[in-house]
Design a protein around this nucleic acid. Structure first.
Lengths: 208, 208
DNA sequence: CGGCAGATCATCCGAACGGTGGATCCGCGA
DNA sequence: TCGCGGATCCACCGTTCGGATGATCTGCCG
């Protein structure tokens, strides 16, 4: 039988080299291309026609991993994309799955887990790292903690240290509305000050 | 001539495999051992006697990279340790250099930079990734931005979302003193709200 | 010894914030 | 069609915060 052909996408040469070394050690898996940016990845999908893509979410320059997934799936909706990244923040996982990723693997996975994930994803099965899976379950089990898009938007700006007045101008809403959103955010996050909310926000949604 | 013998320390199998693949492609460099935790690394230094150690700072379980560097240098003060990590937060760089690292390399470095760094470090030369170097220079050129220990302490607690009153009780000082410290912190960080200060604090000192 | 930096405390005041309790509008699904 | 959740808005009120300013005490370095 022919091996599964894989395209690696990661901006770190070292990670690409490592994944290639690991995957090529398996007779039924073959890395046929690498890409260091999202743009390269989209091109490589067209030219190399891999059967599976592994995708880092943080890609340094250019479009990010989520956007790359989206574009790849515009080119080939059947092509499974397996996210392979370091962090499993709530927002990242949801955004990646939303963009069409078939699985979400953490970089500290064991080789066995990685092989199984690649084979599973190539066969069309969803694969999630255990920590990611439990996170998602939590998210589902506690929907009351899920911020609305507008609240998340506000929280992001809040994390920049903006005042209510500035938030209002930035979002084209009144200061009163800002305060209403903030009150909702505080309730959902279990805090009662903007400083604490910023703290939670930066931990949750990763760093910027 | 005999190649430089290297011990790789990183909790990610993929990264170890990648570095090994890269370094072993060079005739004058030879990876002789790998370690996934700080404790393993210290043991491996004794048993394998490498001429150079590459060290990730985030090691998952057990002691962290900085502590590992410290212990390795207790075993062999002449053994150069090259930090090889993803992030270059101010605090990390300073702590690693302080612990005795001879260089600080970022994981998104090119293979050429990595080879040069390994050869340089093995020869006893200090090597810093350009972004890291510029950061350190900034730190030195703007000592006025350096927070006093007390201010840093306060900032850490502030990042937990505490109010002035709570900060005062936690640090056994009056609320007035808290405000004085905060004013100094704001001036040094170039912000004027506690939320913005928290934001800066979390970026600077890494997370947690 | 004299000064300087750090830590401590104080007071005052206007601005910003957080809590409470409303209100309207819209779209979506039961 | 009738809710319900999301987004928007408003007013009131007490608390907190940030800025300005000045003061004392300590330890250290020249």
């Amino acid at each position: 039988m022919t091996p599964v052909t894989v395209l690696l996408v990661d901006d770190h040469v070292v990670v690409r080299a490592g994944l290639r070394a690991l995957l090529d050690s398996q007779p039924d898996i073959e890395v046929i291309a690498e890409a260091g940016t999202g743009e390269e990845a989209v091109d490589a999908v067209s030219t190399c026609r891999p059967q599976l893509v592994t995708m880092d979410l943080a890609l340094g320059a250019g479009i990010d991993g989520v956007e790359a997934i989206r574009r790849i799936r515009q080119v080939d909706r059947a092509l499974p994309v397996l996210v392979f990244t370091t962090y499993d923040t709530d927002a990242d996982v949801v955004r990646a799955i939303d963009a069409g990723a078939i699985g979400y693997l953490l970089k500290d996975s064991t080789p066995q887990e990685i092989f199984a994930a690649v084979r599973g994803a190539a066969a069309g099965q969803s694969v999630l790292s255990p920590p990611v899976a439990s996170r998602l379950l939590q998210q589902i089990q506690r929907p009351e903690e899920a911020l609305t898009p507008r609240e998340a938007e506000l929280l992001t700006l809040l994390a920049k240290g903006m005042t209510n007045k500035e938030l209002g101008k930035a979002l084209f809403i009144s200061e009163a509305t800002v305060k209403t959103h903030l009150a909702h955010i505080y309730a959902k996050l279990g805090v009662d000050t903007r400083a604490a909310a910023v703290s939670v926000a930066l931990r949750r949604q990763g760093i910027r």
